[in-house]
Amino acid sequence: SSQSQGISSSSTSTMPNSSQSSHSSSGTLSSLETVSTQELYSIPEDQEPEDQEPEEPTPAPWARLWALQDGFANLECVNDNYWFGRDKSCEYCFDEPLLKRTDKYRTYSKKHFRIFREVGPKNSYIAYIEDHSGNGTFVNTELVGKGKRRPLNNNSEIALSLSRNKVFVFFDLTVDDQSVYPKALRDEYIMSKTLGSGACGEVKLAFERKTCKKVAIKIISKRKFAIGSAREADPALNVETEIEILKKLNHPCIIKIKNFFDAEDYYIVLELMEGGELFDKVVGNKRLKEATCKLYFYQMLLAVQYLHENGIIHRDLKPENVLLSSQEEDCLIKITDFGHSKILGETSLMRTLCGTPTYLAPEVLVSVGTAGYNRAVDCWSLGVILFICLSGYPPFSEHRTQVSLKDQITSGKYNFIPEVWAEVSEKALDLVKKLLVVDPKARFTTEEALRHPWLQDEDMKRKFQDLLSEENESTALPQVLAQPSTSRKRPREGEAEGAETTKRPAVCAAVL
């Protein structure tokens, strides 16, 4: 046999249950609850290399294929790409003598399909299967379609040439079993990697079954959420508030809700932002270029202005709740996480202390139980975000031990490091100062900020419009641009040419 590394010779191994799959997660993409704000000051410096380099560890398999027929071997997927077919160049070659004697062998292509993985959001991997055969590759009886790919989820059954000719079961060793999710959700989405997690739940990458488009699904544990919100009269209202707010909003710089499922837990389906959180971008770069800050901040102002015009105060604006559309420097941003939002009543007064301390406005800290506050709290938070983006460190921090965090904020005395700000323009610093004003009545509004000289930049605004146009074009394009080929190089076993392929839609398939 010419099988590559990772293939075992026996096809009769006992199949494990899916609970053996491991679970991976990374930083929070968007969480309903406010958790302790991640610290920006503690960015690790590059460490000196050791005298002796450690040995390379043996790579762990990321997936496993269990053979369902004699003549096929099990495969431990270690590499990122595997070709399957009769050709000797394939990493998994159909060359077992037992297999060659079967009637089905002649229906398999020289290069029938490939399984591979690509880097997705949060640097996690996504597994795909890609059909290159004349007679078809099927996943859970659905045709992939020649020249098309679809994501592979845990426990997928792979069939060759005929939908009933099941050859492998695919085990993704990095994700959960699909069966743990409600059927209504599974009918519409293929669940994938964990993108982030918080005290009350997690955010998962998923794929729409009909279109193969990526989405983010925010899962909120009702049990954990009820415990964490025990002081509230009705904890469920917080989730329902977020859903109702998101459904009503329609702005290019605000995250869109696509679906909602109320089962044992809450499942909020949101558009996916491939670039992750602004927080991670700031930490990764230490600070952002001023031109990049301007492009992002302009969009934040437009989003918050839209919220305020619609009578909504976000109340928890922070870099973790600003998501980026891509890994590119120039990209769209979207505001997310409306769990603490407040729809303005007639009095415009709110007395609930919520939000993240580092970003809270002075009037929030001094008015607990005594007075109210209004939309100006969001403008203060925007000032803190702009400060961080321009400088790479927070204006107020618990680690300045000589003054408490509350006193720093209520006095408006931010930590100004001259040598850092020497590289920032006077106009940018002036806008920061106009937003970090203790008196909410004297603080800049979103309208005033948008009129500030720093943002009178036609090149930046043109760039934003171009990015918007690109997004609109990409969302308007159909996901499947061509029909699967019906040509046949070899006959199917026991049926006429093209008899099955043309009847089945290529579900969740995307043209390369």
Rank of each mutant, 00 (worst) to 15 (best):
E244M: 14
I245S: 12
L246Q: 00
K247L: 10
K247Y: 12
N250G: 10
N250D: 08
P252S: 09
P252W: 05
C253A: 15
C253Q: 08
I254S: 02
I254E: 07
I257H: 08
D262H: 13
A263D: 00
A263K: 15
E264M: 13
Y267V: 05
I268S: 14
I268L: 13
V269D: 06
E271N: 14
L272Q: 12
G275Q: 00
E277D: 08
E277S: 01
D280M: 08
D280R: 09
K281G: 02
G284I: 05
K286I: 09
K289C: 07
E290M: 13
A291M: 07
Q299M: 07
Q299L: 01
M300G: 01
A303Y: 01
H308I: 01
H314A: 02
R315Q: 03
K318E: 02
P319Q: 05
P319M: 09
E320N: 13
N321H: 04
V322Y: 00
V322H: 01
L324N: 04
L324W: 02
E328F: 09
E329T: 09
L332I: 09
T336C: 00
T336P: 00
H340A: 04
H340M: 05
K342C: 08
L344R: 12
E346C: 15
L349W: 04
L349N: 13
R351E: 06
T352P: 02
T358G: 05
A361Q: 03
V364L: 08
L365Y: 14
V368H: 13
G369N: 14
T370Y: 01
T370C: 08
A371K: 09
A371I: 03
G372P: 10
G372W: 14
G372V: 11
Y373A: 01
R375I: 09
A376E: 14
A376D: 14
C379H: 12
L382F: 04
G383T: 03
G383I: 01
V384G: 02
F387R: 01
C389S: 11
S397F: 12
E398M: 11
R400F: 02
L405W: 13
Q408C: 00
I409S: 03
T410Q: 15
Y414F: 01
V420A: 00
V420L: 07
V432G: 14
V432I: 06
K434H: 14
F444V: 15
T445K: 08
E448C: 15
H452S: 08
D457C: 11
D457H: 10
D457S: 12
K461S: 05
R462P: 00
F464I: 10
F464L: 03
S469C: 15
N472V: 12
S474M: 14
A476S: 02
Q483L: 09
Q483P: 12
P484L: 13
R492H: 09
T502Y: 00
P505T: 04
V507H: 09
